[in-house]
C-alpha cells in the first residue's frame, strides 16, 4: 500500500499543471503571437492589426537593409566579446587574487558583488552623472588636473566605450561569486603538494587553479554571452534612442524603440523574433566552443 503512493504519479501532474498553464498563457502564447504579429500591420500598441504586410515577410526584408539594425547587431556582438574578455576575464583575475589573500577575502567578496544588487536603472542614472558633460565627475576631475575644455563622453566616437564600461562593471561581481565558489571546491592538498614540489604561486594558478576551474569558466562564458543579448535597461537609460547619431543601438534597445517610440509594432515584433533566433544560434555556438570537460 505504502509503495503505491510513490508509484502513483498522477498527483504530480496536478501540481505541475498551474505552472504549465502559466507558461502557456504568459510565455508560449505571446511568443507565437509575436511571430504572427511580425507579419502583420500594427501601427500603435493596443490597436488591432490591419491585415498582413505586403509582402507578408516585408519586415524581415527591411531588417536586412536597415542600417540601424546592422549597428545594433554589430554592437551586440561587440558587447558579447567585451563581456567575455572583460567581465569574465576580470572576474577570474579578481577571484584568484581574493582566493590567494588570507585575510579580508570576505570583505572583497561583498565589495565586488555589491553592484549586482543595485538596479540597472539606478546605475544608469549614476553613470550619467559620472560622465555628465557639464560638471560631471570625470570632467570635474580632469578640470582639476588642468585639462583644457570639457570632454563629451557620449560623443559618437567614444559613446560605445562609455556605454559598455558600466555594463561590464556591474556584472563582474556575478561571475566573481560563481568563480569563487568553484575555487572553494579545489582541494587544498593539491596546492600543498605543489608547494612542497617547489611550484611558485603563478605556477600553482597556471597548472592547478585554471585547469580545475575550466568547467566553471565555461559556465560563466555561456551565461555572459547569452546575457549580453539581453542587456537593455542600463544602455537605454544612458543612451536613449541610440544616441548619438544612431551609434549605440543594441538589439534589445532597438526593438524597444521601434515598438514603444516609433510605434512600428510589427517591425518591433520582427526584431524580437530575430533576437530569439540570434540567442538560440549563439548559445549553441558558445556551448560547442566552451564544452565542459569530463574529469
Amino acid at each position: 500500500m505504502g509503495a503505491n503512493i510513490y508509484k502513483n504519479k498522477k498527483p504530480l501532474v496536478f501540481f505541475l499543471l498551474p505552472a504549465f498553464l502559466f507558461m502557456i498563457i504568459y510565455l508560449y502564447y505571446p511568443f507565437f503571437r509575436n511571430i504572427l504579429n511580425s507579419f502583420m500591420k500594427i501601427r500603435q500598441l493596443g490597436t488591432a492589426a490591419k491585415g498582413f504586410n505586403e509582402p507578408w515577410f516585408s519586415n524581415y526584408v527591411k531588417m536586412v537593409t536597415d542600417k540601424n539594425m546592422h549597428t545594433a547587431l554589430l554592437n551586440t556582438l561587440i558587447m558579447m566579446l567585451v563581456t567575455l574578455m572583460f567581465q569574465v576575464g576580470t572576474a577570474i583575475v579578481l577571484a584568484v587574487l581574493v582566493d590567494n589573500i588570507g585575510r579580508g577575502s570576505r570583505f572583497f567578496r561583498t565589495v565586488y558583488f555589491f553592484p549586482i544588487v543595485i538596479s540597472a536603472t539606478a546605475l544608469g542614472l549614476l553613470f550619467n552623472l559620472i560622465f555628465l558633460y557639464d560638471k560631471g565627475m570625470i570632467n570635474q576631475l580632469l578640470e582639476k588636473l588642468g585639462a583644457d575644455g570639457l570632454t563629451d563622453w557620449k560623443a559618437k566616437g567614444i559613446a560605445l566605450v562609455t556605454m559598455m564600461f558600466p555594463v561590464v562593471w556591474q556584472y563582474v561581481g556575478f561571475y566573481f561569486v560563481i568563480l569563487i565558489t568553484g575555487l572553494n571546491n579545489i582541494p587544498e592538498d593539491l596546492y600543498e603538494v605543489a608547494s612542497i614540489d617547489g611550484a611558485t604561486r603563478w605556477q600553482r594558478v597556471r597548472f592547478i587553479t585554471l585547469p580545475l576551474l575550466r568547467n566553471v569558466i565555461c559556465t560563466c562564458a555561456v551565461l555572459g554571452v547569452t546575457g549580453a543579448l539581453k542587456v537593455f535597461d542600463l544602455p537605454w537609460v544612458m543612451f536613449p534612442k541610440g544616441m548619438p547619431l544612431n551609434s549605440t543601438w543594441l538589439t534589445g534597445t532597438y526593438m524597444y524603440y521601434q515598438t514603444m517610440e516609433a510605434k512600428d509594432v510589427d517591425y518591433g515584433s520582427a526584431i524580437a523574433v530575430a533576437i530569439v533566433v540570434l540567442g538560440i544560434i549563439t548559445s549553441k555556438v558558445v556551448n560547442k566552443v566552451f564544452k565542459e570537460a569530463d574529469y
Partner: peptide
Amino acid sequence: FPENTLSAT
C-alpha cells in the same frame, strides 16, 4: 546649440 546637443538629454 550646446556643444553636446546631439548626445545630451
